[in-house]
């Protein structure tokens, strides 16, 4: 059974459609990166999954519980960290987490035990007696994450967990999520691509409310336009080299970039995905005995996938 199934989910705000016909499913144990530009509909989709925003049409279920027919049952299986982490400013960290634990139905000795565990895991120990009002952004984010972890839910939905943090804090949170990955299903939204590349084993790309891709990072980068791209820097007769390169079969196009200082030419060779034109290109340049200082075959990244999927043309 899938941990999350989403079927034809639709959300309309007035006349504006924020999410259009989203259908996907997430298996137990997957770490899913929810990618999209700002305003793509990531938060809206997540809010619908948590049962906070009712969908205009379509449905979803969490651990087999429909979010509309069995909302409480569905919520018992999820831990949610909202975007910007709204908190009660006048409460202390421990007090707040104990309240949240009870709200999630944890009782008796387990309240203390669970709170202790999440405080430990999220590195909140030094701030546990502090008023939430006085916490820095990084610690607020950790309180939100600690809250989501209370009660050890099967599914974690994290909306931009590293938003607004400095690089060190981002790394800490990322390590934390990675350590959670072992025994949880995680959906995290972000617009930081390297983050997804590092921790996710599945990527869903959403743009203007539409799901554009839903696959593993490896599958997504395979067969991309950017995949066979080679960049070369050399000196010598530019026209000759370009002509000879274009004559070579797998090459689709040679793009001449701005010349570099010192008389170096810079060209980018676009070829069929999955081919390697480096050897031939080097041979062409060597045949003319032109000096060459750089030849590099582009390794396609999620960024390329993202740009390709969300381009406006």
């Amino acid at each position: 059974m899938s941990m999350v199934t989403v079927e034809h989910l639709h959300k309309v705000f007035g006349r504006f459609t924020a999410v259009k016909d989203a259908t996907f499913s997430i298996e137990k144990g997957e770490i899913v990166g929810f990618l999209g530009p700002n305003g793509a509909g990531k938060t809206t989709t997540m809010k619908m999954l948590t049962g906070y925003l009712p969908p205009t049409a379509g449905t979803a279920s969490i651990a087999g519980h429909d979010i509309i027919d069995q909302p409480l049952e569905a919520r018992r299986h999820l831990g949610y960290m909202p975007e910007n982490v709204p908190l009660y400013e006048d409460m202390r960290v421990l007090q707040y987490l104990e309240y949240r634990a009870r709200l999630k139905g944890i009782c008796g000795k387990s309240v203390r035990q669970q709170v202790g565990w999440v405080v430990d895991r999220c590195g909140l120990e030094p701030k546990r007696k502090n008023l939430i009002r006085t916490l820095s952004k990084g610690y607020r984010q950790r309180v939100g994450l600690a809250d989501a972890l209370l009660g050890d839910p099967d599914l974690l939905i994290l909306d931009e967990p590293t938003n607004g943090l400095d690089p060190n804090q981002i790394r800490q949170i990322r390590e934390l999520i990675r350590s959670l990955a072992e025994d949880h299903t995680v959906i995290l939204s972000t617009h930081i691509l390297s983050e997804v590349e590092m921790i996710c084993n599945k990527v869903i790309i959403i743009d203007q409310g539409q799901i554009k891709a839903n696959d593993t990072p490896t599958n997504l980068t395979r067969g991309l336009r950017a995949a066979g791209r080679v960049s070369i820097e050399f000196k010598g007769d530019l026209d000759v080299v370009v002509k000879e390169l274009e004559a070579y079969e797998p090459v689709k196009k040679v793009i001449v970039e701005e010349p570099l200082p010192g008389g170096w030419h810079h060209v980018i060779v676009r070829a069929e995905p999955g081919t390697d034109t480096r050897e031939k290109a080097a041979a062409i340049i060597a045949a003319h005995q032109f000096p060459m200082r750089h030849i590099y075959r582009h390794i396609p990244s999620l960024e390329d996938v993202f740009v390709e999927m969300t381009r406006k043309d």
């Binding site: 809010k47 909202p82 910007n84 709200l103 999630k104 139905g105």
Partner: peptide, 10 residues
Amino acid sequence: GTMEGLLTAP
């Protein structure tokens, strides 16, 4: 925004 936390708990 804390209503969100309330209504996403059981």
